[in-house]
């Protein structure tokens, strides 16, 4: 069958593809330019607002940036993040294993779905942060409490996404596997998990975002340690640029981590989403 060459006009397709990558490149540069402009504008507005100043507790952008760099190089960020990321990483790892496992189980078994899914639906919609004071009184102010805070916020969304992912697996692919006499294990490992992986991964990203909220909340509410301590301490001594820099740093760290995770996902798990 020599069809594709004729039918899909590969001679035509080549200049087409070339042109589209050219436009793609231009477009890529354009979005990068827009991003730079957008970020620049934001900082400009911040600087102006700081100079007016709109509040005694509102430092300018430049002051904050200076504080940020100082804290970056004098090691206070390094020490703080070593402390903050510990419960986050442990909590997310536990939530990921437990959540993906439970989610896949709920997706595969009607009984597990009936028993467990409603609990997670409630937990995801409910403000779990309300329970943080409680765990403090049970597990004290140590690592366990902070890890639990992360798990409480991250687990429901990870589990529910795993469940949704397995439920929405393309039924036609499952039929295909059955029609080639795939075994139960082959169906799960070769079809269901790969097909569900994008939504599972999206759940992990949402879980990580929730975990960041949890760990910060724990550090602000339970024990002033890590980055939460930087925020609280600098606030108490009215070092506002340092305080703002700490807040900016945590938003930056979470954003970068999440984008890295997304990039990893596209690169490793989903070749079809890779551009070009």
């Amino acid at each position: 069958m020599s069809a594709p060459a004729h039918a899909n006009g590969s001679p035509r397709a080549i200049p087409g593809a070339g042109a589209s990558s050219f436009w793609g490149k231009l477009l890529e540069h354009r979005t990068a330019l827009w991003r730079a402009a957008s970020i620049g504008l934001f900082f400009l507005v911040w600087e102006i607002a700081g100079r007016i100043p709109i509040s005694f507790a509102f430092p300018t952008f430049l002051e904050t940036a200076r504080a940020f760099l100082t804290m970056l190089f004098d090691g206070s960020f390094v020490a703080a993040y070593a402390e903050t990321l510990q419960p986050l990483v442990i909590g997310i790892a536990i939530s990921a294993v437990l959540g993906v496992g439970l989610g896949v189980l709920m997706g595969l078994s009607r009984f597990a779905e009936w028993l467990v899914a409603p609990v997670f639906i409630v937990l995801q919609a409910a403000p779990m942060a309300a329970l943080i004071p409680l765990i403090t009184f049970v597990y004290g102010i140590g690592l366990v409490s902070k890890t639990l805070a992360v798990i409480m916020l991250a687990l429901p969304v990870i589990a529910l996404n795993g469940y949704k992912a397995v439920r929405h697996v393309n039924p036609s692919l499952v039929d295909m596997c059955r029609s080639f006499q795939g075994t139960w294990w082959q169906r799960i490992l070769k079809i269901i998990l790969p097909d569900a992986s994008p939504i599972i991964f999206a759940g992990l990203r949402l879980g990580l975002a929730a975990g960041f909220i949890g760990v910060i909340l724990a550090e602000l509410l339970i024990t002033p340690t890590g980055i939460g301590d930087l925020i609280t301490y600098h606030r108490s001594v009215a070092d506002y640029p340092e305080m703002y820099a700490a807040v900016v740093s945590i938003i930056l760290v979470s954003t970068l981590t999440l984008s890295a995770l997304e990039a990893f996902e596209v690169r490793v798990l989903r070749p079809e989403k890779k551009k070009g």
Partner: peptide, 12 residues
């Protein structure tokens, strides 16, 4: 998706 809880002290 940012941990906005970190912003609350600033708001305070």
């Amino acid at each position: 998706s940012a941990p906005l809880s970190a912003l609350v002290p600033v708001l305070m």
